Amino acid sequence: MTTERIAFLHTGAVVIGPVAELTSRILPGVESVNYLDDKIVKDLGDAERASSVEGRLEDLVRAARDAQASVVMLTCSSISEFAAPLSERLGIPVLRIDEAMADRAVAQGSRIAVIATLSTTLAPTTRLIAERAAVAGVAPSIVSEVVEGAFAAVSGGDRGEHDRLVGAAIERLAATADVVVLAQASMASAADAVSVGVPVLTSLEPGIERLRDTLAAA
């Protein structure tokens, strides 16, 4: 009997380990394969290089399909908007790891605060929440913020400073929100360091749980 294979497409190596751990716990017995292009987020912010991103993603999804993966999951919010067109062109389900998080945010309050450390991630996440709100038939208010200096800190190896900056933003925005959304999976450690009176949502666990449900339904 052939083991079912799923593919994850990453834009940062830091997410591979946590995704693998969750997948082994939530989807035991399923084989996973990882594809990484760690320049995509940077290139999305470059006018000359941004046009190459969709083609590169298409090549990676095609590779996953050719490797007999039954489904592909995009693990970065910056590229989630490519999921539907890639799925349609290549004939394989392409899921967004942040969609389940967006649905939870919409269900938990009418005032949603979105925090990111990169502008290239903030805008797609905000649009995704608005999209899922429309599907649910609600119209929440959405405020968003890029935490200046946090991405530079973690890129330079200073996770403590990253968590301090993001944690401060969580505490400030939670004061006037029903739910706080962290747009990047790499921000999750900051949520663990603060305690606020509203839910603080991250994408990985809800996303892998939705992947499990999708596979079960198929």
Rank of each mutant, 00 (worst) to 15 (best):
D158K: 01
T176D: 15
A188E: 12
V179A: 03
V135W: 10
V179T: 00
G149F: 06
A185H: 07
L165V: 06
A188P: 00
A185L: 07
V138G: 08
A193W: 10
L165T: 02
S144V: 00
A191C: 05
A139M: 11
A136S: 15
E161I: 01
A177S: 15
F151L: 13
S141Q: 15
A169M: 11
R159K: 14
G167N: 08
G137Y: 08
A150S: 13
T176R: 12
L182G: 03
V180N: 06
A168Q: 13
V154I: 15
T176M: 01
A175D: 12
A177R: 01
V181C: 01
I170S: 01
A183I: 01
D178Y: 12
A168E: 15
E161W: 03
A188R: 11
E161A: 09
A169E: 08
E145Q: 15
G149L: 04
P140A: 07
A168W: 02
S155F: 00
S186F: 05
R159D: 14
A193C: 10
S141K: 13
D178V: 09
G156M: 13
S186E: 03
A169H: 11
A185R: 02
A190M: 02
F151T: 00
V181G: 03
H162W: 02
R164I: 01
A191P: 06
S186H: 01
G160M: 02
H162T: 00
D178L: 11
A188Y: 09
A174G: 14
F151E: 13
V180R: 04
L165K: 07
R164D: 09
G157S: 13
H162S: 14
A190C: 04
E161L: 14
S141F: 09
I142S: 07
G157T: 13
D158I: 04
G149E: 00
G157W: 12
A153V: 06
V179G: 03
R159C: 04
A190E: 00
V147N: 11
G160Q: 01
R172T: 11
A175C: 04
D178N: 14
E161K: 05
V135N: 08
G156C: 13
R164T: 10
I170H: 03
A153I: 03
A153R: 02
A174Y: 03
D192V: 05
A175N: 06
R172D: 12
V179N: 02
R159I: 13
G160K: 03
D158C: 07
A190N: 01
V154W: 03
V179C: 00
R164C: 08
T176L: 00
A191Q: 01
G167I: 02
V143N: 03
A174L: 06
L182N: 01
G137M: 12
A183Q: 01
D178G: 15
G156R: 14
S141W: 09
E161S: 06
E161F: 02
V147G: 13
D158Y: 03
E145L: 15
E171L: 00
M187L: 12
